[in-house]
């Protein structure tokens, strides 16, 4: 192991900047269905690196607006694709990061709110779109989106919270729906959503201790974190696990130095970008979550990130605090 690992900030900025210039790669086209999410990951990574201006603001906003699905409401991940709660949150996060939520017309804003609320089911859960897949990821998408728009209300929040609490498991984790196995990413969506709507007090002290215990057991001897027992470490869990620990104020229950080393070893030192684990292919998803993890731990002079929203604190401090 090299004795002094460092974060290659400039390389990462160049890597993210290069992503939209790869039209001659097949992969570029194969990932259109994730484009809006990708822009959010890239922009957030750049924000953490204090290099937001790398993207042209006007172009990005224009692209975001071109993804709006006027038929069903909400944002699609790419023009002419379909609105979904996953891409809707990304669209709103990008606009909020640019402080330009008012770029949405009043009509579209209303459509968007209707789309989000319209996907809530009688048991408080959310489907991602009209085809019925239910997942606590979508509960998070919906509550975070409504919070960004300043449109949370108890008729939506209360049943949503009841549903999330039903996804709590005996081991101290949360799953994708009641009865589903605990998974670090689902723990983030559940705790993040509870934090956003200010309902963490619905968890008992005992539950918080159990959650903290389960989360800190995700750290493996090599320093990286895994998503479930007996699975390999992966840089993206630097975010899912750490943000969850931060939300319950137990961030230091894992070892920072070791995790930092794992993230830094997963960098591509030549081309920039961060991969899921050392020596694998990099992507923008692992790049942002690696950086976000480092930011939460306070390393490398990164811009501070909000663990519940996964956006810079400077942006989220402007959001109205629920209950309004």
């Amino acid at each position: 192991m090299p004795s002094e690992l460092k974060l290659h900030k400039e390389k990462h900025i160049q890597y993210i900047d290069s992503l939209d210039k790869k039209q001659s790669d097949f992969e570029y086209w194969l990932s259109e269905h994730l484009r809006l999410n990708g822009v959010y990951w890239g922009l957030t990574a750049l924000s953490l690196l204090n290099a937001k201006d790398t993207f042209k603001r006007e172009d990005v906003i224009k692209f975001v607006l071109s993804c709006f699905d006027d038929q069903y409401g909400g944002f699609a991940p790419f023009p002419k694709h379909d609105g979904h709660l996953l891409s809707t949150l990304s669209g709103l996060q990008i606009l909020a990061t640019y402080n330009s939520l008012d770029a949405l017309t009043v009509i579209r804003r209303e459509k968007c709110i209707k789309f989000i609320k319209g996907n809530q089911l009688p048991d408080g859960s959310f489907q991602g779109d009209r085809f019925g897949e239910v997942d606590t990821r979508f509960s998070y998408n919906a509550l975070s989106s409504l919070s960004i728009l300043g449109e949370l209300s108890s008729d939506v929040v209360d049943p949503a919270v009841d549903f999330i609490l039903k996804c709590y498991n005996f081991d101290g984790g949360f799953g994708s729906c009641p009865g589903a196995e605990s998974h670090s990413a689902q723990v983030f969506t559940c705790l993040g959503a509870l934090a956003i709507v200010n309902k963490l007090d619905r968890l008992s002290d005992h539950q918080i201790e159990e959650i903290g215990w389960w989360l800190c057991e995700r750290q493996l001897p090599e320093g990286g974190l895994n998503g479930r027992p007996s699975k390999l470490p992966d840089v993206c869990y630097s975010w899912w696990v750490l943000s969850s620990l931060a939300v319950i104020k137990k961030l230091d229950w894992i070892n920072y130095e070791k995790l930092r080393n794992f993230i830094l070893q997963s960098q591509d030192e030549v081309k920039g970008g961060i991969s899921d684990r050392p020596d694998n292919e990099v992507d923008v998803f692992h790049t942002v979550f690696g950086l976000a993890g480092l930011s939460l731990m306070g390393f490398d002079d990164l811009v501070p990130i909000d663990p519940a929203y996964c956006m810079p604190c400077s942006v989220t401090k402007e959001f109205k605090v629920y209950p309004y």
Partner: peptide
Amino acid sequence: DPLRKNRYLH
């Protein structure tokens, strides 16, 4: 198990 030292201190 030093990785989880702070939980044990808690």
